[in-house]
Design a protein around this nucleic acid. Structure first.
Length: 378
RNA sequence: GCGUCGGUGGCAGAGUGGUCAAAUGCACGUGGCUGUAAACCACGCGACUUCGGUCUCCGCAGGUUCGAAUCCUGCCCGACGCA
């Protein structure tokens, strides 16, 4: 059972209000998807994640395959039973790790650059620690050297064992430093892999194809047409989106215009609060980002007035809540001073309180997005 | 009181004649982080600086030496042992 219903289309933008129905319940869209890489939204229990307003999580095939392994997870009742999360789940295919453990590590860059790079990765280059072949990718765990091979078939098989409601095709998330020739070849491979994923897919889990093409408009369009024509139940848009928020919106809009309108679109790995309106108004339905939890553990707090670093000494005497406009349990209960102290003292509770607040804030922002579409404001 | 060992930058702790403004870790500061190798990473951390350097510095005071955190003498302080 998988269904996507569009409740309302914005007259001002490509934004749409919708509901994704899965075997584990509904997702009101646009929705923010917290990242639970290893079957946990770090520092938070599953019921706390739900309490922070999350509707759906995304876990990771690569990481769960390495530990504890999909067999064990399957025996535990799939990820749902394992982590006691009752709502919808997605699993990412491991395609992002092709980048993050490959060229991402080699060049010390994330998938989003701030400016035009000086050097680009030419066609034929291989990353240092992994090997990309036409059938899949040879990984070596940077932690313990564990070797493994992940390709479209393997990824689908693992994701079927893990049992999320929505699974993703295995792709190469290309480096933002890749040149056009590299991107061209990579895209062809990702498209082949998409086809292999469809053929390998046996369960009723919804399978999303992934559009790539980097910041090359022609390649993006081509990818959207090819992937969009395949029998996927939804689409992920991956890779980079240019150096500023406008190019993000433009690129997403272009891609979305070429995808079937009636299927949900997930923007992979993007979503700082300031990005939300761009994503939604470009027609994105769901999007995931590590930011709320990742930054929380480092002391960065997201608020209605922007972000700030709670570790700064001046917050030791600040009795205000993290965000005066926030209605979350943390803001109703604890002061900045307390959380500042906890994080400076490396108490895990500090990271947890910050994570909960940030997560709540992100989900509340997504809710605000839905309200704005409903009220014809976006 | 005697003996032994020891006193190094905010803390811990290397160094034991030049290459030492002094390893390393912690703390602190700044910056970074967008499908999580991420409670992480980079840089800074004596003072001034035209960024080339200049000055001050290893308990305190002297001394030896071309040169001392490093050797010697005295003093102060600490730990331990013996009285």
């Amino acid at each position: 059972m998988f269904e996507f219903k569009i409740l309302k289309r914005s007259k001002k933008s490509r934004a749409r209000l919708g509901v994704i129905t899965t075997p584990h319940g509904e997702i009101e869209t646009p929705a923010f998807v917290p990242v639970a890489t290893r079957a946990t939204v770090r520092t938070l229990e599953s019921d706390e994640v739900e309490g922070a307003g999350a509707q759906v999580l995304i876990c990771n095939t690569y990481h769960l395959h390495i530990a504890p392994g999909e067999k064990l997870v399957k025996r535990a009742g799939g990820i749902h039973g394992f982590m006691q999360w009752k709502k919808p789940l997605m699993t990412d295919s491991g395609g992002f790790q092709v980048f993050s453990l490959g060229f991402g590590t080699d060049h010390g860059v994330g998938k989003i650059l701030k400016e035009e790079p000086e050097k680009r990765i030419p066609l034929g280059t291989q990353p240092t620690n992994i090997k990309i072949t036409p059938d899949g990718v040879h990984f070596r765990s940077p932690i313990d050297g564990t070797q493994l091979f992940l390709g479209p078939k393997e990824s689908i098989r693992i994701q079927e064992a893990l049992g999320a409601d929505i699974i993703f095709a295995f792709d190469e998330c290309p480096s933002p430093l890749a040149n056009e020739a590299y991107m061209r070849r990579s895209l062809d491979m990702t498209h082949r892999w998409a086809d292999m994923c469809i053929k390998a897919h046996k369960t009723k889990q919804a399978l999303y194809g992934i559009v790539q093409g980097g910041s090359f408009k022609a390649l993006r369009s081509e990818s959207a047409k090819i992937i969009g024509a395949m029998p996927f139940q939804g689409f992920g848009i991956g890779g980079e989106f240019g150096y500023d928020k406008r190019s993000l919106k433009k690129m997403l809009s272009d891609v979305h215009d070429l995808l079937p309108e009636d299927k949900p679109r997930h923007v992979l790995g993007v979503g700082h609060p300031e990005d939300f309106p761009y994503i939604a108004s470009a027609g994105g339905d769901t999007f995931d980002c590590i930011a709320p939890t990742h930054y929380a553990r480092r002391g960065v707090i997201f608020t209605s007035k922007g972000r700030f670093d709670i570790r700064n000494r001046r917050y030791l005497t600040d009795q205000k809540p993290l965000d005066s406009k926030c209605k979350c349990d943390i803001c109703e209960t604890y002061s900045r001073a307390y959380i500042c102290h906890l994080i400076r003292a490396h108490e895990i509770t500090g990271m947890k309180l910050a994570s909960f607040h940030n997560l709540h804030f992100f989900n509340a922002e997504a809710q605000r997005l839905r309200t704005r579409i409903k009220n014809d404001e976006l």
